[in-house]
Design a protein around this nucleic acid. Structure first.
Lengths: 342, 342
DNA sequence: CGTGGCATTGGTATCGTTATCAAAGCAACT
DNA sequence: AGTTGCTTTGATAACGATACCAATGCCACG
């Protein structure tokens, strides 16, 4: 059994002490280069695999960065994790990922599980948590980052943007195009807090523009799929056939809505204007391209990573870093349909 | 500092020994229910958070299942991880994820890092690895699963399917529709072994049907995006304008190709037949729907999980579980375009 | 009433590394 | 030569849980 090769065995074989072997495995250990090379060679020959469980306990460091996201199967959150992971892995830190299925109870359990692993820092998506989850985060004694949101009362650090404000921008864009009968397709308000914020942002913006906001289509619990976007569009057309434009909670539902229009022979944007959210790849490839909002998910991850690395070096609390989202106007809301460079 | 609350402190506060506290935190510990409840209550009040780093070392169990995937931002692999995670989490096991960017060197490093964490089992995507990565897996002393492939010489267990065979099915389907001038859009052969297998499967199938196979479009290194699918289609139309059908390495590139046709006014499937791979959601939503192959990614994950759970209970080696992929015929390859139920 | 068996609890050594302190070796200086 | 300072190495005691064995209390039974 190779598995029982320990540092002691390597030390014996290399003719040094375990302490020297230990140092040889650290990158900044003060070991003579020739000694280190010899040790690593012996270790490789013996099939030794460093045991971080022991190192973790003794050094009180795990080099884990804990992260919770609503769903692993969402390109936006995946981009955030990728950005975060790429930056922290350069410092020898590893992401420990858990997902919550857009459920605060499950988030609480995930946070508890993650904290037991003694991560160096923890990142959660969104700013709404169960009371106990909040307590766990507050007393964790490590840097906490809430991402993808701007919570009114942050636990600690924040890297995000105002979901509501993006909808304001979007409604203003549509009103500028001359539309007034504007609908919203989104999920159930409670489960997906970012989706709910967008819904509230939409209603607020409509009121601000003096428009009535009675075309809200519930697309069910998150995540809202393309298919659910399509069926929501079908429902919208039944309930409010005179709708001019529809704001969707994400590009996925927006694309679904777009296909439903295509199936019904409705032209986009001539007969129906559609907008999405997230700047998923599909938004810039489909025909017509989708008007959307780019929240720069990867950038959120990278900025989160940088914030964490700083906080680990020199403790700091309650930092807020806003990532300004960008309106991306596509053919789905404009007469002049641009083309994707092929 | 709450962080310094240890089991000893809980034990003292609850008036029991540390051993009893330890047992109270295990689900099957032999502790009187009232004692357990009292201990857990005291622990919660003190803000005690169980320290698994210590438990891991002493019990020689981490309850980690290590997993490497080529990219976190791929719905198919995400589904596999979700399926795996859902099943193992029921047994108190947690997925420890790393990604390789479709690079064997990076896979080797990821595997080494993961093994240091002493996982209970390790899952890798695909059946091709660097010699050292293979050695690491072989001597890890834990169950190993290669997923998403049927390697000719497996390291240990396998849960997957033949990527080449799926292309055989696809070509046969297209030939049955009367097509002969069939092209392939895919990535560079070396980096993505599954993509390469599909390419080889395609060429083999073409030859088997007596067709020439000279319409291979290189779409660059993986992952092949929608946009790359679109530009590959543009190149194909320049090089071989008389192409009747194109087999794409994935639904993403297939959708990109579809949009390129739409922009050029080519009708699908009348003027151009397109097929994909993966049964991504978009394949069943876009207009027309895409003919594709469903490899049941979630099922691969679930089956992998079950195999691992069995192997952990009763050691077993070299099991192979095939997940039969399914041809999904959509509107992109058939005259009778079906509709998505809206 | 003594004994056996079960449920529950406690004491102690230990998992495999690293923090810490100490010492040895060596070069450069007074 | 003795001293200082630096680099490199080693011995020992932890890190905070759990495995293992032992002991206690209680009930049922002959």
């Amino acid at each position: 059994m190779q598995r029982s090769v320990k540092m002691k065995d390597v030390a014996r074989a290399a003719g040094v002490s375990v302490m020297t072997v230990s140092r040889a495995f650290k990158k900044d250990g003060s070991v003579r280069p020739e000694t280190r090379d010899a040790i690593l060679k012996v270790a490789e020959e013996l099939g030794y695999v460093f045991d971080s469980t022991a190192a973790n306990l003794r050094s009180q460091r795990t080099d884990f960065i804990a992260v919770t996201i609503p769903s692993i199967n969402n390109a936006n959150f995946a981009d955030t994790v990728a950005g975060l992971s790429d930056v922290v892995s350069g410092e020898g830190l590893q992401v420990l990922l858990a997902y919550t299925n857009y459920d605060m109870e499950q988030e609480e359990r995930a946070i508890e599980q993650l904290l037991r692993r003694r991560p160096e820092a923890i990142v959660v998506t969104g700013g709404k948590h169960t009371p106990r989850a909040r307590r766990l985060l507050e007393s964790a004694g490590i840097p906490v980052v809430e991402a993808w949101d701007l919570p009114p009362d942050p636990v600690d650090n924040v890297v995000g943007f105002s979901n509501a404000a993006t909808m304001e921008t979007m409604v203003t864009h549509l009103v500028a195009q001359g539309h007034t009968r504007i609908a919203f397709i989104g999920g159930d308000a409670d489960a997906d807090t970012r989706g709910a914020d967008r819904r509230h942002g939409f209603s607020g913006a409509m009121s601000a523009h003096g428009l009535t906001c009675d075309r809200l289509i519930e697309a069910g619990p998150p995540p809202i799929s393309m298919r659910e976007g399509a069926s929501a569009m079908a429902r919208l057309l039944e309930l409010h056939p005179d709708t001019e434009a529809v704001v969707c909670v994400s590009d996925l539902s927006a694309f679904g809505a777009l296909t439903e229009c295509q199936r019904r022979g409705l032209r986009v944007p001539e007969d129906m204007v559609i907008t999405g959210f997230g700047a998923y790849e599909i938004a810039s490839v489909c025909v017509p391209t989708l008007t959307t909002v780019n929240p720069f998910p990867q950038k959120i991850g990278e900025e989160t990573a940088r914030l964490i690395l700083q906080a680990l070096q020199k403790p700091a609390r309650h930092q807020v870093r806003q990532i300004a989202p960008e309106l991306v106007v596509g053919g789905s809301s404009e007469r002049h349909v641009e083309r994707v460079s092929g």
